[in-house]
């Protein structure tokens, strides 16, 4: 496609999805290769408007953080794997969002994975839930017990007490402690 045809296709896609003009303008400001790569992405994955805006924002932020053009970010192995997978377009769009978030927030992704693995290892009984702060925005950890009757509550409290040392280590990880 020529530059004019790409612009026309972008405008047509944006009109169909009612993409706000500010985003269209930012899209058209991109270098030709990035503009086209983003159009192919939007068309192939049948992105909804909100998904497109989030993906576009993540791609731009990753580009600035890592000094890499958007088109190059899209050639990363973990991104290519999504396109190669035998998955529906909406499934691929969701997977792409997850992968881009992990690239954009690597420490958050890694720390969450580490803490969630610790929580899984605890094998907490049903009725006990460890609630982490949204996006690790604070160091607050909450342990929720959901019981019906005194005997069940006693059992859950004992289960938590038996794991108090490991729960304490999880709380320390949230506060920046090294792997313990």
């Amino acid at each position: 496609m020529s530059g004019t045809e790409v612009e026309a296709a972008i405008r047509a896609w944006a009109a169909e999805r009612r993409l706000p003009e500010a985003h269209v303008a930012r899209w058209l400001e991109l270098p030709a290769s990035e503009r086209t790569a983003l159009l192919e992405l939007a068309q192939t994955l049948h992105l909804r408007t909100g998904q497109f805006v989030t993906i576009f924002t993540l791609l731009k932020e990753i580009g600035v953080r890592e000094n890499q053009p958007i088109a190059e970010v899209l050639t990363r192995r973990e991104v290519r794997n999504i396109f190669a997978a035998n998955e529906s377009a909406p499934g691929k769009a969701r997977a792409l969002l997850e992968v881009l978030r992990a690239i954009r927030f690597p420490q958050l992704h890694e720390t969450l994975a580490q803490i969630n693995a610790r929580i899984t290892e605890l094998r907490l009984p049903e009725g006990v839930r460890v609630v982490l702060p949204p996006n690790l925005g604070s160091d607050e950890v909450r342990v929720e017990l959901t019981a019906h009757g005194g005997a069940e509550l006693k059992r859950l409290v004992e289960a938590v007490t038996a794991r108090s040392a490991e729960l304490g280590r999880i709380a320390d990880l949230l506060g920046g402690a090294d792997e313990v």
Binding site: Q107, L136, G137
Partner: peptide, 11 residues
């Protein structure tokens, strides 16, 4: 703000 574990570790 920077995620709490990273921020507190740096402090």
């Amino acid at each position: 703000r920077t995620i709490a574990p990273t921020r507190f570790r740096l402090y």
